[in-house]
Nucleic acid binder design. Structure first.
Lengths: 164, 164
DNA sequence: AATATTATGTCAACTTATTTACATATTATT
DNA sequence: AATAATATGTAAATAAGTTGACATAATATT
């Protein structure tokens, strides 16, 4: 009996270990292949993620750096650099929030919109390759599982002090 | 009929988009929370992944940088820096391969083994939090799905020229 | 045997992530 | 109203990822 429990724990621990390692591998490959796939558009996967957030209906009026960082689950400080590079190329603009002079609202420029439109074909073909052999049903299941993991990580992050 | 197909495609594209974004979020949080969780052991999640590879029975005799890079799915060049930091602290050693003088075999030192042993308790508690609300059966399913994604990414990477 | 090609690891420059520190603006407290 | 506390964004230093270039060693070719 005791042995059964121990064996079960060891199995679970081994699975957790492998699962975390797979996540690490997949993330590395997502970045590597994504960067190269959109190379000719001069955009990285991180910039791609940012543009994808800015085109959402909800953020048409602009989004504060703090909120964008929370959405992408990166630090505010990290965004400063990426946003500066995007701004230097004229893809986004930083607008001072009328209601709070500390805050900068990040918005896509017409140039940014055009670039986003230009890369949609390649983004679609990338997803077609990356999600090969996965049915929509499979994708729904993965999404569900990743949501649980994301929530667990978010809870750990919060318990660790959040953005401090 | 045509419309059904279009709708189906749009749904699949939306799922792919959200799935990739979840992967990006989870990876960011895994690194952020993992780094902080093992802070007192002075080890990052990347170093943790490397140590975890080096303790495997198969690599007790040492592993070449090229093979380690393939396992972690990062570039050879990236490892140079991380390995130098680990070597400077005396956790690993680079041994010239007798059979091929170009190759360096990476091995854990006794100090490295001790440090690895010291952090096992915290690693276990991290996994307990990170994998909360997931049964072993769930973990097996996630592992299966991530394997498919990893293989898809690997295929894309290879088609893009691999390590060039 | 001499030479060309390939493989391995490292260095340098760049992007993206982190934390700490800080200037400035807003909000709360007294 | 004055002051303390909090919030926002940025700068700087460090770690981890990328690619391109290179020295050196092993292998293939002639």
């Amino acid at each position: 009996m005791k042995q059964d429990i121990d064996e079960s724990d060891a199995f679970g621990a081994s699975l957790s270990n492998r699962l975390a390692f797979r996540l690490y591998q997949c993330a590395n490959q997502l970045n590597k292949t994504g960067n190269k796939w959109l190379e000719r558009h001069e955009v990285t996967t991180q910039q791609w993620a940012i543009l994808g957030a800015l085109v959402r209906d909800r953020w048409q009026g602009g989004i504060a750096v703090r909120d964008l960082a929370a959405l992408l689950m990166v630090s505010r400080q990290n965004l400063t650099g990426v946003l500066s590079r995007l701004e230097a190329r004229g893809w986004i603009e930083r607008i001072i929030d009328e209601h709070d002079n500390r805050s900068r609202l990040i918005k896509l420029t017409p140039e940014g919109w055009q670039r986003w439109a230009d890369m949609q074909g390649d983004i679609a073909s990338f997803y077609a390759e990356a999600m090969k052999n996965l049915s929509n049903n499979d994708k729904v299941h993965i999404l569900h599982y990743l949501d649980i993991l994301r929530e667990n990580f978010r809870a750990i992050d919060e318990a660790q002090g959040g953005e401090d």
